[in-house]
Amino acid sequence: MNYLPGTASLVEEIDKKLLVVLRDGRTLIGYLRTIDQFANLVLHRTIERIHVGKKYGDIPRGIFIVRGENVVLLGEVDLENEDKLPLEQVNIDTILELQREQQVERELEQDRKKKAMAERGIHVDQAIDDF
């Protein structure tokens, strides 16, 4: 592939271990195998990493084809410092449980707001957090 110097290109990232943040907030970590002009990605040996506070858990996912428009950013994982993070890894069930609790809390909060708004005759679309 021929590209100009100074151009942001993903070509150099191929076959590297990358962290991908999606628009819905999910974090995937995997090996980038191929790309195209839309930043559609193929990720190999992917895990989904869930963070709750200082804890995180990994779920093995396998191969992903990610549609480019859902990509927020890609970062090269710093392999040297990968294991020196001030975070604690927990098993899948624990992190899923923590995530669920966090989710419930958020929904309660949103419901409260919605209710307060509705009582004043304002109907809020659920689309707020959709962007």
Binding site: L19, V72, E76, V77, L85
Partner: peptide
């Protein structure tokens, strides 16, 4: 753990 990144 990320030092450099590509932002869409």
């Amino acid at each position: 753990s990320v030092k450099t990144c590509f932002i869409r």
